[in-house]
């Protein structure tokens, strides 16, 4: 299943990550990626939320595979960009789906968000 606990703060996970040499930052039109980020230098990923619905999760992983295949030969074509754009679109959809699940996870929470003064929503210090 998708979205199991992934702690980016564990450096071991990304020790083998492809690290861009710093001088590439000077190349026009290239995205500069922080070196520490690629080494896993301390990003904290909150992974306590619900898992992505399997339907979308499968689409995301399929789209990544397809994008990697499409871009294998040459990665400047429109097809390659379109393939990675599809990955972005599906990743965003997956994230929205997780947010929706989180919002609807507890009906009392969502009710109390609108009516914090209702008797069943009040909290007392003592």
């Amino acid at each position: 299943m998708a979205s199991t606990v992934a702690s980016l703060s564990t450096p071991a996970n990304f020790a083998a990550a492809d690290v861009l040499p710093r001088r590439k930052a000077a190349v026009a039109g290239r995205v500069w990626f922080p070196l520490a980020a690629l080494r896993g230098g301390g990003f904290a990923v909150r992974s306590t939320g619900p898992a992505t619905p399997p339907g979308i999760s499968d689409k995301v992983s399929d789209s990544i595979k397809k994008a990697e295949e499409t871009c294998a030969d040459e990665n400047v074509s429109g097809e390659c960009a379109a393939a990675w754009d599809e990955v972005e679109e599906l990743s965003a959809a997956a994230s929205h789906a997780r947010d929706k699940l989180k919002e609807n996870a507890d009906p009392l929470e969502s009710y109390c968000k609108d009516k914090p003064e209702a008797a069943e929503c009040r909290t007392y210090d003592n």
Partner: peptide
């Protein structure tokens, strides 16, 4: 990152391609 199939490389590739 928590999404199955994604890696730092795929996230980077997607940003670069777009």
């Amino acid at each position: 990152m928590a999404e199955r199939g994604h890696s730092l490389e795929s996230i980077k590739a997607s940003i670069e391609a777009r």
